[in-house]
Write a protein that binds this DNA or RNA. Sequence first.
DNA 1: TATTGTTATACTCTATAACTATA
DNA 2: TATAGTTATAGAGTATAACAATA
Lengths: 168, 168
Amino acid sequence: MGGRTPRAKAIPNPARDPVLKVMRPLVEAYWAFWLEASRYIRRLRLTPSQLDVIATLGDTEGMTCSELSAATLVTKGTLTGVLDRLEAKGLVERSAVREDRRCTMVRLTAKGDALFRKAFPAQIAHLKPFFERALAPREATQLREVLLRLRDSFRWRRGSRSRGGKRK
Amino acid sequence: MGGRTPRAKAIPNPARDPVLKVMRPLVEAYWAFWLEASRYIRRLRLTPSQLDVIATLGDTEGMTCSELSAATLVTKGTLTGVLDRLEAKGLVERSAVREDRRCTMVRLTAKGDALFRKAFPAQIAHLKPFFERALAPREATQLREVLLRLRDSFRWRRGSRSRGGKRK
DNA sequence: TATTGTTATACTCTATAACTATA
DNA sequence: TATAGTTATAGAGTATAACAATA
């Protein structure tokens, strides 16, 4: 993914419109965060999509491909390739599902789980100072609430999809 | 779909750590936003990187490739290809620079500028309701401040590169 | 008929590095 | 030597659609 993003440059009247007052900072804050986070991801020799899959599978007992696709925003067709590469690295495994033989269950291998358990705390520890330097604890709490409300505002509109929605 | 919802993405102790309290909502809010915004981008037949370039060039008198690369986070090597495609679409043009013949100046064509002027207000208008539904004006102001601070926290660490494109 | 996962196609982006032509 | 932009290469992602097996 690694989606590239419109930096929302030169949008008209950023000072006047309350929406714009938030939109650009949102994009810029996320980008700044992402730039830092993606270094770590690369060090794991994973692409963003691959990490997305690993993170989604972490702490679960596995998912079918379609569940995984819904939970990661990796489209169905792409997922096959992503899983192929993760399987080649020995991080995930596919197995048959008895009840519905169309489905394939995907789960982390021991190696994948180990990566998940090691990589995330390390990533968090690395990113933590950036947040702590910018935010007082109370602000963090407020920020969280507001961001979640914003997230939901976008999710609602997209129809009442499965509650979990897209995670990342 | 029915049954199993992917367990929350298993980042350790999201409830306790104030950093984590913000990190995931940041990512999720951005993604929800991006999912909606990217629809519009696709309708313009632009890729995210291409839009990034267009948006960066908008309201400027042009930039050299290296300036553009620095302002967009599109790497030097990739930029050539992106510009080739935008040039083929008639949205940007390259021209020589007298003072330094190694440089190439890139600017929007009339067509590119028209796209920029039309597309952005439309995009904003589309996204506005999502923000307005979620945030009171005062909250928007606060959110802006906090996000900018967070952004800067990440930027500082990366050295003091000025990342704003030259504006007219 | 509908769904699941795979395959196929064509394009785009990424990272890296070598190359050229200037400076 | 250093810089600007291009080219080259290998790998990976995207969108879209068709497809086989199964339900």
